[in-house]
Design a protein around this nucleic acid. Structure first.
Lengths: 166, 166
DNA sequence: TATTGTTATACTCTATAACTATA
DNA sequence: TATAGTTATAGAGTATAACAATA
């Protein structure tokens, strides 16, 4: 950790814009810091890309999987996206209220709720996929082919934490 | 994008655990997906690491900078962490209510609120830094020195999005 | 006029615990 | 007994718009 307070070269009081930019004091040496900042930037760009479609990353993930796996159980989709049951329930409630998907009691196991995209949901996802592609292109443009491959691989490795913790 | 519905090799109905794992249908080829999953995993591990200290990543970021930059303006800290004023205000309210920091009207510019860590806040951060170090070590263990360096550099590059969007 | 912070409002995500109904 | 989903509850982050005080 080294010394907690690096001696700054005189406060000087420039009375600048908001005040001087703060001393990060090693905060930017934390992997978690970079990860969060990158995710926040990506999420903002995602939301902007979706615009009038008004879907978050998470909602889009659910709609995406529901459309590709018609009749999949609510729990299965949630588990795949790393959400607990309560969170998933909330999210599905909202999508259902917007008429984008339907819950149906499973015929195989009456405890399950199978999810189906409505026609409106499918139409929305059709448009969403175009926006997502643009958003992805905007991000991927920042990297070379090799860098991108490596970045995804490294990010994936972090999910080992999820197993270890929960 | 290719075909949206890959023909699956027969549903088979294994009647497995929750149902079959869903077909990701290219979702895992999105950089945003990996980014979000990695961040969620890291955040969970962070929360677990903090345990009884009960500080989120964001709150910790604020406390960290406040301690290293005593008297910095609320807006300056918020800007550094990429938060808008309303979000920052909420967060500072909570930290102040817990007695971890204090707001003071700035002498230089009466519009500003300068932030100061309380003794309790400093003591908490003392302990928090130990936990954060452990959490960071647990993540960094997943990578070689070179990989880690590269990963941080690549993540940083994504923040160009934030400038372009907002 | 522009900036800093506040207020009000709303939405989303996360999580825990207790509960129902099924299996 | 275990599982899928619900309910109730709470905390946290994000964002927009209007406003007051100050510069």
């Amino acid at each position: 950790m080294a010394s907690r307070r690096k001696a700054k070269p005189d406060p000087v009081i420039t009375a600048g814009s908001v005040s001087d930019p703060p001393d990060l004091d090693g905060l930017d040496q934390l992997l978690g810091y970079h990860l969060r900042r990158a995710q926040v930037a990506a999420h903002r760009d995602f939301i902007a890309a979706m615009g009038d479609l008004v879907l978050t990353q998470k909602q889009t993930g659910v709609m995406w999987l529901v459309q590709s796996n018609p009749g999949a159980a609510q729990g299965a989709i949630g588990a795949e996206l790393g959400m607990d049951r309560a969170t998933m329930k909330e999210l599905v409630d909202r999508l259902e209220a917007r008429g984008l998907l339907q819950r149906r009691r499973s015929g195989v196991d009456a405890r399950r709720r199978d999810l189906h995209a409505t026609p409106a949901g499918k139409r929305l996802m059709e448009r969403a996929r175009v926006r997502i592609a643009r958003h992805e292109a905007r991000m991927k443009r920042l990297f070379s082919e090799d860098e991108l491959f490596l970045l995804e691989r490294l990010l994936q490795r972090l999910q080992a934490l999820d197993v270890a913790t929960g």
